[in-house]
Design a binder for these strands. Structure first.
Length: 269
DNA sequence: AACGAAACCTGCGCGC
DNA sequence: TGCGCGCAGGTTTCGT
């Protein structure tokens, strides 16, 4: 599902629901989600959830001594239910909280991941160690330095989480449309001003999307019943065959590095 | 070093 | 109705 705005929506929702609760039981039905030894994973038992952070698309549960890192990938979702309700199909992990409720991890495609690290080391371990800055804190010069030395298409560069974190397929399309840059332009071909326009557009898009609770496309909900409203603000993504909101030219869909990509062939060049 | 394709999974919609 | 194919908001791994 999720790019930065959707993960932020999940984070805020969870923050209101499970903060300061203690994990009293864990049920793991599909262990491959867990990248840590399952025996180590049981260290979570008895620990309290003190804080829920987010970096890029990663959810970060701060516990007493450890940190649980969760990546929802394409379709990971959470549900909160009363305990003693059995896990259904596609529900792979259950965290019982305070002997009362269960936080359920639901993931049809089973792509999601969880890592457990000590609170001292998690920032320098695998998923977070190489993560790039988010658009809101990214420095223009730093982004230009990285982009201008790459001979790959700009869309692929913006999807590279080690360069800049939080953007995915939807928001990259929306960002490049607003910056009037074609997704197949090579990084090395972009001027400083163009990179600056891209960064400003990314900030604007993400800011607005966070305010609206993210984008709901297909089946994604932040949590059970929590829908985003940014899909009403999409200008190009999913708009194939429709007129460009700026110039009226028909929006086309193409493949860029294997990803479905929506572009106005007139505005973006 | 850097890039692209394949792999990880399942379900859905489409054309035949 | 059934089958096969392509597609899906992400990332890692493998081969070139």
């Amino acid at each position: 599902m999720p790019e930065l705005p959707e993960v932020e929506t999940v984070r805020r929702t969870l923050e209101n629901l499970i903060l300061n609760k203690r994990v009293t039981k864990i049920e793991v039905r599909y262990p491959k989600i867990i990248q840590t030894d399952v025996s180590d994973f049981n260290r979570i038992l008895g620990q309290k959830i003190h804080r829920i952070d987010r970096l890029g698309k990663h959810l970060i549960f701060i516990l007493d001594h450890d940190v649980l890192l969760i990546h929802l990938r394409m379709e990971g979702r959470f549900f909160l239910r009363d305990k003693d309700t059995a896990l259904n199909k596609h529900e792979h992990i259950g965290f019982q909280l305070d002997h009362k409720q269960v936080l359920i991890y639901h993931d049809v495609r089973k792509f999601g991941t969880m890592h457990l690290y000590s609170i001292e080391t998690y920032l320098s371990e695998s998923p977070l160690a190489k993560l790039g800055a988010e658009p809101m804190t990214m420095d223009v010069n730093s982004l230009y330095d990285q982009v201008s030395k790459r001979k790959t298409e700009i869309k692929a560069i913006l999807l590279d989480q080690t360069v800049i974190s939080g953007l995915g397929n939807i928001y990259v399309d929306e960002t490049l449309f607003r910056a009037k840059i074609h997704p197949t332009r090579l990084g090395i071909s972009l001027s400083k001003l163009e990179v600056e326009n891209i960064l400003m557009a990314a900030r604007e898009v993400l800011h607005k999307a966070v305010l609206l609770g993210g984008t709901t496309i297909r089946t994604f909900e932040a949590m059970d019943g929590v829908h985003g409203r940014f899909q009403n603000e999409l200008l190009v993504h999913t708009k194939v065959g429709e007129p460009c909101p700026v110039c009226g030219t028909t929006i086309i869909k193409m493949k860029v590095k294997g990803r479905g990509t929506y572009v106005c062939p007139r505005c973006q060049n």
